[in-house]
Structures are given as C-alpha cells and as structure tokens.
C-alpha cells in the first residue's frame, strides 16, 4: 500500500514536471512561429513560484477557494485513473475495469468546479466565460463520447489498460489505423479540450480578459497553473493510450504526448478563434457525424 502511494506520488510528480515543461516547450515553439526567441523553457516553473510568492490575496467566499481545488482535483482525478506506462507496475496508477468513464467524468469535473468558483468571483467576464466554456464543453463532449463508445464497441472493454493491451504488437494495431474515424473525431474534440485557437473563446484575452480566472491571483493562480501541467499531461496520456498504442517507456511517452500536443499547437497558431455559437455548430456538425459513423461501423 505504502509502495503504491509512493508510486502515485512519483507518477504525479512526473506528469507535473513533464506537463509544465511541455507548456514551456510549446511557448518556445509558438514563439518561433511568431519569429521570436520566446521565454525560457523553465518559465512556467518560475511563474508558479512567483504566483505563490504573492504576499496578499483576496477571496470572494468559500466557493472561490474551492474553485482551484476542484480544478486540481479534476486534473489529479483524470490522471490517477489512467495507466501512464503499459505493463509498468510503478506507473499504472489506479487503473481498473471501466476507468474510461471515470476519466471522462473527471475531465469535466474540474471545469464544473472552476465554473462555480469563478462565478463567485463576481466578475462579469468570468460569468460570460463560464457560460461560454460550459456550452463549448458540452459540444465537444459529443464527438469525444461517440469516439470512446466506438472504441468500447471495437475492443469490447471499458478499461484503458485493456484498450492499450489490445493495441500492442505492430504500429498498425493502433486505434489510429484500426479505427481512423474514431481517432479523427477524438482529435477534433481534443482541439476543443486543449483550448487553443480556434476554440479558445473561453479565455480570449481580446474579448473577455483571460476568462474564468479573471479574479484569481497569487497562490490560487499558482494552483491553476500547476493543474495546467497535470491536466494537460493527463489528457495527452489518455489520448496516447486510447488512440496511439500507449507507451511502455518514459521516453516513448514523452515523444508521443509531445507529438499529440503539437496537433493542437499547429492548428492554434494558424487559425483565429471561433465564436461560441460557431464552435458549437462546428462540433455538432462533421465531427459528430464522424463519431456516429465510427460507432455504426463497429456496431455492424
């Protein structure tokens, strides 16, 4: 039991550091696209230290405190039920049969908690952003859920570990090749999930400055930033497990999650953002149809 707890701590530390480093690397890459040098790779860590070093902070009530807590709980929850490395006892976390559903629930849990917390912040921009975020979230959940259902039908299991196990062998047994339609639907949903353009209207700094966390400062913000590392890492690992054959070693995990994240980043730097209504129409259009097709194809 104690060994398991130590393993969990180790694996959370790994994903936090990797998630934040990935953020730093991405900033650097985006800066290169812009023609800039960009911030140092370790900048996210400095930012977190700086935010926690603020001497004063203001609160707007209990829910305001709990918002970041929910958020980080959502991030941790997502992460803790995903096996990071296939076949590794150390990085298997709490994976069990049926964890796909728990993970999907946790992905949205954090956002709901954040919605309550930032709503109590009382800033009108937070409220607008929360409305936008929840609307957009329920839209991109549809293709993602359809895609996961298609996988469940395909592999006849609800366990991430089993899905990964079924993809072992050659590269052509990855879901990416065995079920391309589900993969496409999920990747499009991931664009929405990662909040890069064109689906970043929730945090659009030109319209509603920074969105839900408008009122959060100091250590609250530090917590949200830490969560960004964990949650990003967790989501990417989930996608890697479900569609890209999982990973058996840490370097493989790093390379795969990096490549998956790059899809979001490259789409992000080359598109402006959709309005909320436009992005909802987008998600409920072709991606949903692709998802439905993926489900039907494997049902038959």
């Amino acid at each position: 039991m104690i060994v398991k707890a130590l393993y969990i701590v180790l694996s959370v530390a790994l994903v936090t550091v990797w998630g934040l480093t990935l953020t730093g690397i991405v900033r650097k890459i985006v800066a290169r696209v812009h023609g800039r040098i960009g911030p140092p790779v370790w900048q996210p860590f400095v930012d977190i230290i700086k935010n926690n070093a603020k001497r004063t902070g203001i609160s707007h009530g209990v829910m305001f405190y709990l918002g970041p807590v929910f958020r980080i709980a959502g991030g941790m929850g997502t992460f803790l039920f995903i096996p990071v490395l296939f076949g590794s006892d150390m990085f298997s976390n709490f994976s069990f049969a049926g964890d796909v559903f728990l993970v999907m629930y946790f992905i949205f849990f954090g956002q709901l908690g954040m919605a309550l917390g930032s709503g109590e912040g009382g800033h009108p921009y937070s409220a607008i952003a929360v409305a936008r975020g929840l609307a957009q979230m329920s839209a991109f959940e549809v293709p993602f859920a359809l895609s996961v259902i298609s996988l469940a039908v395909q592999y006849d299991t609800f366990s991430v570990s089993s899905i990964v196990a079924a993809q072992q062998g050659s590269i052509f047994s990855w879901t990416m090749f065995t079920n391309p339609l589900a993969t496409i639907a999920a990747i499009i949903a991931m664009l929405g999930m990662n909040m890069h353009s064109p689906f970043d209207v929730v945090i659009a700094p030109q319209e509603i400055p920074i969105g839900p966390p408008t009122e959060y400062q100091g250590s609250f913000l530090g917590m949200l930033h830490t969560n960004r590392g964990i949650f990003n890492g967790a989501k990417l690992i989930l996608f890697m497990n479900l569609y890209f054959g999982g990973a058996t070693t840490i370097p493989e995990m790093i390379v795969k999650t990096f490549c998956i994240y790059m899809i979001s980043v490259f789409v992000g730097v080359s598109f402006p953002r959709f309005r909320t209504d436009q992005s909802i129409r987008f998600f409920l259009g072709i991606p949903t149809l692709i998802g439905v097709a993926a489900v039907i194809l494997y049902w038959l």
Partner: peptide, 11 residues
C-alpha cells in the same frame, strides 16, 4: 512584446 525586441525572453 513582439518579434523585434521580444521581452518574453526575460520572462
């Protein structure tokens, strides 16, 4: 803030 002087180099 942009490419010419880019103070994001300094964090």
């Amino acid at each position: 803030f942009t490419a010419r002087f880019d103070i994001s180099r300094y964090g």
